[in-house]
């Protein structure tokens, strides 16, 4: 008995690890990846691969230079890489995901201390950075080589005088839900594929339903009540743009979302309200990325003030239910 292990309790642990969680997220992103390649061609795959490889590379490089323990095996950089590519139009140049990955991993993640320490979502920071640096390339949408406007961009023109809903020639609801023939970022157009990923994450208990459902529901309610479409098609807008991608895969990022169920509800409602305000009143047609980034900044505050009830904190004796 020379190799006796002494350790603190508990002596048994769940099988789940950071790596297994990230692996599940990667699996959940696969349906959307496949649909992205189907709609936007092999270049979508190329951009995704470049983005993933460079994200992992920058994480490795940074930790190598700073002589920190290498964390690329936790697969979080792979997830970030996939999400960066998902947030780009297929027309982006091959080197743009590399710039985005460098910004996401080094500036947004590692400079703040690496996994678990960043206060904003790295992939969304990369998107915001690229959008500010290469606005034209990041907002030129093409399907099968033909440049198109996104449904949200079309809706934006409603503000202009003389434009009516009928004259917009919007794609059908079936189109926006499945992404067929819809312009947009690589990973965002097929809501159905993203929903499949959502169901997988729920089954695997990686995320709870709260943030995605409440986020999307908030946008739905707002677009129904005060929407540009009126009551009749409030649900049309939830399938447009990056809402499903953002609500399911970005707003639920553990590190940058609140810890308690109540906090998550507040955060999700905030994301929904901001998204809708930007969509309708902002100068951008789409507001998912910025609303999530803004709400990310509010998370420390939410975590500070919105905490659950402590067991036994209030001496309250409830009467036993009579069975």
């Amino acid at each position: 008995m020379d190799n006796i292990v002494m350790s603190a309790t508990p002596h048994v642990r769940s099988k789940e690890s950071v790596q297994s969680i990230m692996r599940d997220v990667i699996i959940a992103l696969i349906p959307a990846t496949v649909m992205g390649i189907k709609f936007f061609g092999i270049k979508a795959l190329m951009l995704t691969v470049i983005s993933v490889v460079s994200s992992v590379f920058f994480e490795w490089l940074y930790e190598k230079i700073l002589k920190k323990p290498c964390t690329i095996h936790d697969l979080s950089a792979v997830v970030t890489g996939m999400l960066i590519a998902f947030n780009m139009p297929v027309g982006a140049s091959w080197w743009m995901p590399i710039v985005g990955a460098a910004f996401a991993i080094i500036i947004a993640k590692q400079l703040f201390g690496g996994i678990g320490q960043n206060f904003v979502n790295p992939a969304l920071m990369a998107r915001a950075f690229l959008l500010a640096s290469y606005p034209s390339a990041m907002t030129t949408w093409s399907v099968d080589g033909v440049t198109t406007a996104t449904p949200l961009a079309l809706l934006k023109t409603l503000k202009n005088s003389g434009v009516t809903l009928d004259s917009l020639n919007l794609p059908s609801l079936a189109q926006v839900a499945t992404g067929v023939g819809i312009g947009g970022c690589i990973g965002e157009t097929c809501a159905i594929a993203l929903l499949i990923g959502f169901v997988y994450l729920l089954i695997r208990k990686v995320i709870s339903w709260r943030i995605p459902v409440i986020y999307i529901a908030t946008v739905f309610i707002l677009s129904t009540i005060i929407g540009r479409y009126g009551v009749r098609m409030g649900y049309y807008e939830i399938f447009c743009g990056g809402l499903f991608l953002g609500a399911i895969f970005m707003a639920t990022d553990y590190t940058t979302s609140p810890m308690t169920p109540k906090g998550q509800i507040i955060y999700a409602i905030g994301c929904g309200v901001l998204t809708y305000l930007i969509r309708v009143y902002g100068s951008y047609p789409e507001g998912v990325s910025y609303s999530i980034l803004i709400m990310n900044l509010g998370v420390p505050l939410i975590d500070k003030y919105v905490v659950g009830k402590i067991f036994g904190a209030l001496p309250k004796v409830k009467e036993a239910k009579k069975a």
Partner: peptide
Amino acid sequence: IPPESSCIRCGKCVAHCPMG
């Protein structure tokens, strides 16, 4: 017992703590 790594703020400890 696997080695410790950084907290990823998943919130599972909060969700499971019987004392809240």
